[in-house]
Amino acid sequence: MDLIVYHYGVEECKPSHAYGPALRDHFLLHYIISGSLSILLSELTEQSAPGITNGDGHKENYIKKSIQFIETNYSRSMSIESLASYIGLNKNYFSTIFSELLGVPPQEYLIKYRVNKACKLLNNKDLAISDISRSVGYDDPLGFSKIFKQIKGVSPKYYGKTLL
């Protein structure tokens, strides 16, 4: 199993701190350590995500790296600008090559990816729509439901009850 570190930082936690309530297909490691943890995590991050060269002819590499980033971070708040910045490209150029190679703009790809992940979570009848929406990167369950209906043609509640 590979360890891919894609987010780290320092946070002061209060007693009984909890990170949730969302479902994730990845693990959160929460260490309470004093010392040089940030150096360790910085090293892990650099080693787990080899850089992309900025030369011409690497469009496929940029898109592959962006899809990997989406698959890893879809449950977090994400903008196309932050995605382009992660890849090391200008937002407009990134959007152009993404659309050129995949046939859809990056924002549409991200939305559809999140909705498809939500469809899988809807198999679990014990989960509330609000929990599912947070699990796929939407803090607002109503906004999530509207987007879901635009993509699938039915509400998440109806989809979970009748189409599964």
Rank of each mutant, 00 (worst) to 15 (best):
F98Y: 14
S85E: 07
Y93H: 14
S42Q: 08
I80W: 00
E81V: 11
P50W: 12
K91D: 04
Q47K: 12
G57F: 02
H58Y: 02
T53Q: 10
N61T: 06
G51W: 03
K59E: 01
I63M: 08
A84Q: 05
A49V: 03
I80R: 03
S42I: 00
L41W: 04
Y86R: 15
I39P: 00
S77F: 12
N73T: 14
G88E: 00
S42P: 01
I70T: 07
E81M: 10
S79C: 11
S77E: 13
N90G: 05
Q47V: 06
I97L: 14
K91M: 09
S79V: 10
E71W: 06
N92I: 11
S77Q: 10
S79M: 08
L41G: 02
I63G: 07
Y62L: 05
G57N: 09
S95W: 07
N61M: 07
S82N: 15
G57P: 05
S95H: 06
S79N: 08
Y62K: 12
E43D: 01
G57S: 05
S79Q: 11
K65C: 05
A84V: 03
T45G: 02
Y74N: 03
S66C: 00
Y74L: 03
H58S: 04
E71L: 14
A84Y: 05
P50N: 05
T72S: 14
F94Q: 03
S82C: 09
F98P: 04
S99G: 15
Y86V: 13
M78H: 10
H58N: 04
Y86P: 07
F69S: 09
G88D: 00
I39L: 08
Y62V: 02
F98R: 09
N90T: 01
I87E: 00
L41R: 00
G88T: 03
G88C: 10
K91F: 01
A49K: 12
L40W: 12
E60Q: 15
N92L: 11
G51L: 11
T96M: 14
G57K: 06
S66T: 03
K91I: 07
Y93T: 13
T45C: 00
G55K: 13
S42F: 04
Y74K: 08
P50T: 06
M78D: 10
I70Q: 05
S77T: 08
D56Y: 13
L83R: 12
R76L: 15
N90I: 04
E71N: 13
I63C: 00
